[in-house]
Simulated assay, not measured.
Amino acid sequence: MSALLGPAEVRRLASELDVRPTKKLGQNFVHDPNTVRRIVATAELSPEDVVLEVGPGLGSLTLALLPACREVVAVEIDPVLAKRLPETAADHAPELAGRLRVVEADALRITKADVGEPTAMVANLPYNVAVPVVLHLLAELPSLRTVLVMVQAEVADRMAAGPGSKAYGVPSVKVAWYADARRSVTVSRSVFWPVPNVDSALVRLVRHEPPADVDRERLFTLVDAAFSQRRKTLRGALASWAGSPDRAAEVVRAAGIDPGLRGEQLTVRDFSRILEAADHHL
Rank of each mutant, 00 (worst) to 15 (best):
M1R: 09
L5D: 09
A8E: 12
E9A: 15
L17E: 09
V19I: 15
R20E: 14
R20K: 15
T22I: 07
K24T: 08
K24R: 14
K24D: 03
Q27C: 13
N28E: 13
N28F: 09
F29I: 01
V30Q: 00
H31A: 06
D32Y: 01
P33V: 13
N34I: 06
R38V: 04
T42H: 08
E44L: 00
L45Y: 08
V50E: 12
L52H: 09
L52Y: 14
G57I: 10
G57N: 10
G57S: 08
G59A: 08
G59V: 13
L61P: 10
T62E: 11
A64Y: 12
L66P: 11
C69F: 09
V73F: 04
A74R: 06
D78Q: 14
A89F: 07
A93V: 07
P94L: 11
A97D: 12
V103Q: 02
E104A: 09
A105C: 14
A107F: 03
R109A: 13
R109W: 05
D114V: 04
P118M: 14
T119E: 03
V122A: 00
N124E: 15
N124F: 10
Y127H: 14
L135A: 06
A139D: 15
E140G: 09
E140W: 11
P142R: 02
P142C: 04
S143K: 01
R145K: 15
V147I: 07
V149M: 03
V149W: 07
V149G: 08
E154V: 10
D157M: 08
P163A: 11
P163Y: 15
Y168T: 13
V170H: 07
P171Y: 06
A176R: 05
W177V: 02
Y178E: 00
A179Q: 02
D180P: 03
A181L: 05
A181N: 09
A181H: 08
V185S: 14
V187M: 05
V191C: 13
P194Y: 06
P194W: 08
P194L: 06
P194G: 01
P196V: 04
P196W: 07
V198P: 04
D199F: 09
S200N: 13
S200F: 12
A201R: 05
L202W: 14
H208A: 09
A212W: 07
D213L: 12
D215F: 06
E217W: 03
R218Q: 15
L219R: 01
F220K: 01
T221R: 14
L222P: 02
L222Y: 05
A225P: 06
A226D: 00
A226N: 01
S228K: 08
Q229L: 10
R230A: 01
K232W: 10
T233F: 02
G236L: 04
A237P: 05
A237N: 06
A239G: 05
A239M: 11
A242R: 06
P245S: 06
R247C: 01
A254D: 03
A255G: 03
A255K: 00
D258E: 02
R262L: 02
R262P: 00
Q265C: 07
L266E: 03
V268Q: 09
D270G: 11
S272K: 01
S272E: 03
R273Q: 08
R273L: 12
L275Q: 05
A277Q: 08
D279L: 13
D279R: 15
H281A: 13
